[in-house]
């Protein structure tokens, strides 16, 4: 399961952005997730080869961060914040509603849809809040949570975009979002053009370090 030439070019470009190639491990792990849908052992071995460390060292890093998923998540990952502010505003009920509707207990996936609880996602002013493939919904209610699940299941959207989600299922926000944008996520990893993980990856790679 080796990487496409395009991905390898991207890897090289990412590595060149840092003074030390080991620093590229985190971005490369996202790249690996995009390649295989989740972080496979092969992916970690790849990253190890590209950054000149052992697979065990890469695994040590990967397992430290909760966003590197080492089990298949499916197409959509719903992360419901259950930290203090969201908790105070009824996050547990939202999580439960979503688990019920999806028929997937937190921390698991049915191959299409994964549900998890998340620690504070920086949306406390719009609590309760959740992420779909890391695209944010603020002020969501249990009912909207149920609708969200149905929308994902029936609509099978190719791209998840936070502004669309917010209009469909959101409520009060932490602050005035004001400006819409149309880029979004294509899998259970953050949509960020330099990583090639977004729907529109734009020019992204350039410019880089003037090394």
């Amino acid at each position: 399961m080796s990487w496409s030439a395009e991905t390898l070019d991207r890897a090289t470009a990412l590595i060149s952005k840092y003074p030390d190639k080991r620093s590229a491990i985190m971005p490369l792990l996202y790249l690996a997730m995009k390649e295989d849908g989740y972080l496979t052992d092969e992916g970690m071995v790849r990253v190890a080869e590209l950054t000149g460390v052992t697979p065990a060292q890469v695994q040590a890093v990967a397992t430290f961060y909760v966003m590197y998923k080492r089990e298949p998540q499916g197409r959509y990952l719903i992360s419901v914040c259950t930290s203090i502010s969201c908790f105070l505003m009824g996050a547990d009920e939202v999580l439960e509603a979503i688990e019920q509707a999806a028929g997937v207990p937190a921390g698991e996936s049915d191959g299409e849809l994964a549900v998890e609880h998340a620690e504070c996602i920086g949306a406390c002013g719009g609590a309760p809040a959740c992420l779909v493939n890391y695209e944010l919904i603020e002020g969501i209610t249990p009912e909207q949570g149920v609708e969200l699940v149905a929308w994902l299941r029936n609509g099978n959207p190719d791209m998840i975009n936070t502004d669309e989600l917010q209009t469909l299922f959101g409520g009060r926000t932490s602050f005035d979002w004001a400006i819409r944008e149309d880029n979004g996520a294509i899998g259970p990893y953050p949509a960020f053009p330099p990583l090639g993980t977004a729907a529109d990856n734009g020019s992204a790679l350039e410019p880089g370090r003037a090394s």
Binding site: K17, Y18, D20, R22, S23, A24, I25, M26, P27, L29, Y30, T51, V53, A60, V61, F64, Y65, V66, M67, Y68, E119, C120, P190, F192, P194, L195, G208, R209, A210
Partner: peptide
């Protein structure tokens, strides 16, 4: 002057400045 945007991956402790530097070096935070 070069500026690079680096994405974290879900670890509160990486807000602590020295953990953040380890993270930026491709290590555990």
């Amino acid at each position: 002057l070069d500026v690079t945007v680096h994405l974290g991956a879900g670890a509160y402790i990486c807000g602590e400045e020295t953990a953040l530097l380890n993270s930026l070096e491709g290590k555990r935070g």
